[in-house]
Amino acid sequence: MFSSGKNMYDIEISDLRKLIQLVKDKYDYDFKDYAMSSFKRRIKRIIELYKFDSVDALVEKLTHTPSFFEEFVSEVTVNVTEMFRDPSFWVVVRDEIIPNILSSHNKISIWHAGCSSGEEVFSMQILLEEMGIRDKSHTVATDIDTAIINRAKNASISQKNMELNTSNYERYQGKYVLDKYFSKNKDRYHFNQDILSNVSFRKHDLVKGQVFSKFDIVLCRNVMIYFNQTLQNSVLKTLHESLFKYGFLCIGSKESLIWCDISNKFSVINNEEKIYKKSRD
């Protein structure tokens, strides 16, 4: 039974199935293989945010109001991100991975799969800029969430989030101070767009699994944790196909390839930072 008010009710799996089916039939997005625990919390959050009184009411809204769908996708996905998240990871990328690629190529191509509001992309561009090789790079950054891609393009960060970004950058031991890359306007920090000149942001759904190019590095960090193992396996196949042989795959610090079907096509480069190399086609 539903009663209104924060946190008063719990959602059952059968409610979620109905919702997922509608979204699939009407909008051709498939959330069936998202991890149930977090997906359920997202739906609960949407219900509270928009003051629906049940999952059925949300289904009703999505049935009759296509314009609501984009907002739905935005809320159902988890966009929390940081610049230089896990500073020790970025140190390894700077000191080992990029030099390794440049020892055999003179250009470097990068894909951020699930880039959210762009913090990970900004971090990589700063890293390349500080190494003096940004002009040798080409980057594609994608996400399923149109609204968040627009935010990434806008590249504006709130004061509140800048504190964490700054302390991560300091731990990473960047060359300068992070502020150097931003101009401040009231309580927002605008990332210097010049540094994004070699980046293109696009919409792409990892569930559909389309391979659109090949890359030297693919970063897909803290994205697959929202998927169940079935979907993780199929997404990893897509990522594998999108890498040049001996290209690098970077996943989140608490993700693992151990259980996936194609783990034998990757070798571990850095287990602590979860960096792998495509060792077989």
Binding site: I13, A35, S37, S38, V78, V80, N222, I225
Partner: peptide, 17 residues
């Protein structure tokens, strides 16, 4: 990370708010 028990006897992590 948030840590959840997932149906099917596994653990899920998440970076939600």
């Amino acid at each position: 990370y948030h840590m959840s028990v997932e149906l099917g006897n596994s653990i899920s992590l998440s970076t939600e708010e």
